[in-house]
Design a protein around this nucleic acid. Structure first.
Lengths: 160, 160
DNA sequence: GTACTTTTACTCGGATACCGTCTGTCCGAGTAATTATGG
DNA sequence: CCATAATTACTCGGACAGACGGTATCCGAGTAAAAGTAC
């Protein structure tokens, strides 16, 4: 039971795209290079976020990716769902019904409600944080010089 | 990101062992048959719970498994840790440090605290429920007749 | 100089391979109760 | 009848095979900007 590394990578990718000025895009290869992920595979993740309407892709020369929604509307949870899918952590396998020989129509197993509550509790934390609130944390004093370097790099690599 | 099915199976196994009278044990094969799991593999899970001091094993003829702790002290979380291990759902892969070119000695990435909080929130729900509280839910009216069947089966299969 | 064609450089989506983990099986060894054996 | 040995029936722990999903790579197709070409 481990979260995909793709989720973390995607969050930082969105955080990177958030630094783009209006109208500019960034090549997928530049993004993956900055993230430190394999370019071809990370492109798939970017497309997943495109399907989830979190980011937009521009095809053709001078193409690339940029945010589709304002950073205040993109929650960490949205990125998680875009990459991992919306299946729950726990799905009852019917042991309860098997042991007690219940009809499948009966109420769910006694573990289901507990697990659902646990999962909701976990997701609620991820829903609380947005790209905007994360970006705000990057404005801290300790990161200022490094962020300038990053912004300069972005100005070189971004398109239009 | 999916919880192992072994966790659910183990919870029901402990719930089953909880129904044993004092001093009695149950063969691993009978347990796995009742759970509906593969006998040889489920024995490994039982041994994991044995290492976690949740249950006790009795070797030799008339051997088997029984609870080691009172049901009030066995939390669902304990079973989860026994089977899944105590690694966290998210471990920072160093993207943050890589992007900002920070020394590894600096504070953790901005996602770490959020993920830790989410995981703690999730675990707290699992720590709340115990085998005793789960067993109590099985005393509900709707299960009474089926539980009698289960208890009768247990009286036949249990040893000493 | 304008309209058209070709080239270039991206994204898109599928097919495929790799690899680690969970699941499942098998085996020899250890342990204790039962049974068999010898006196 | 009693003590000892052999058998039986469990657990223990490791080795190993199979299935599955996440990761990673490659390819042809689609798209749009740029460059080249013709008039």
């Amino acid at each position: 039971m481990k979260m995909k590394t793709g989720v973390e990578q995607s969050v930082y990718a969105v955080l990177l795209l958030n630094m783009l000025p209006e109208g500019a895009v960034l090549h997928s290869e530049e993004i993956s290079r900055q993230i430190g992920a394999s370019p071809t595979y990370f492109q798939k993740l970017l497309r997943k976020m495109g399907s989830a309407e979190l980011i937009t892709s521009v095809p053709g020369t001078k193409g690339g990716f940029k945010l589709k929604q304002p950073p205040e509307d993109i929650r960490v949870y949205d990125i998680y769902v875009a990459i991992e899918g919306h299946q729950s952590l726990y799905t009852p396998s019917g042991i309860f019904e098997g042991m007690l020989e219940l009809d499948d129509e009966d109420d769910q197993c006694i573990l289901g409600s507990l697990m659902d509550e646990a999962e909701d509790s976990w997701k609620s934390v991820l829903k609380r944080e947005t790209i905007a609130s994360l970006a705000e944390k990057l404005q801290a004093e300790q990161y200022s010089s490094r962020m300038d370097v990053l912004r300069k790099w972005l100005n070189e690599k971004m398109v239009v």
